[in-house]
Write a protein that binds this DNA or RNA. Sequence first.
DNA 1: CATAGATATACGCTGTAGCGTATATTACGC
DNA 2: GCGTAATATACGCTACAGCGTATATCTATG
Lengths: 84, 84
Amino acid sequence: MNEQIARTPKQIGAAMRRRRRALGLNQKNLGEKTHLRQATISGLEAGEAGTQLSTLFGVLTALHMELVVRPRTKASTDTIEELF
Amino acid sequence: MNEQIARTPKQIGAAMRRRRRALGLNQKNLGEKTHLRQATISGLEAGEAGTQLSTLFGVLTALHMELVVRPRTKASTDTIEELF
DNA sequence: CATAGATATACGCTGTAGCGTATATTACGC
DNA sequence: GCGTAATATACGCTACAGCGTATATCTATG
């Protein structure tokens, strides 16, 4: 359960939230590590689509996580429009 | 070679560029699929840290790709600061 | 319940992404 | 080399992320 597929901002946000909690951190702690506000972490975890890559990777690094990019595994009905 | 680890915007951009080319698309085509400008795709592939998650996931979807989020596999000396 | 800790939300501000449009630069086939 | 396709860059514009700060709302746990 520690490999999460993420096809949307919400999914990646949820995965990061689980990881943060597993590490026993709160949003404020994590904000200090990453030089981001607690409110910014909150938005990222909630899956705000406008969040920037710098924010994403900053938090990933602080959580000792990484991404894997790969072709989609299962068929999906996702369209661009319904992503947001 | 179709699973790429990405710990920085540049790495994820490079992976997406390889995938786009493997699919025989140019930035303009991809921009039309995603409702993004060719210039925006260019920035994403170049690893601009300010790129938004909506842009990232829009392109990932158009390229039939997905992310996996997971704890880091190997030891790394990465720090937050040197990411950007 | 009470209340402390955690998370979500608000306000005004500054910086910048993405836009349309256009052009400059690079890479490639002939 | 030359021309063309592909990619990078520029300009002015609007929208909004992230900022500091503050507060409101949830959530434990006694």
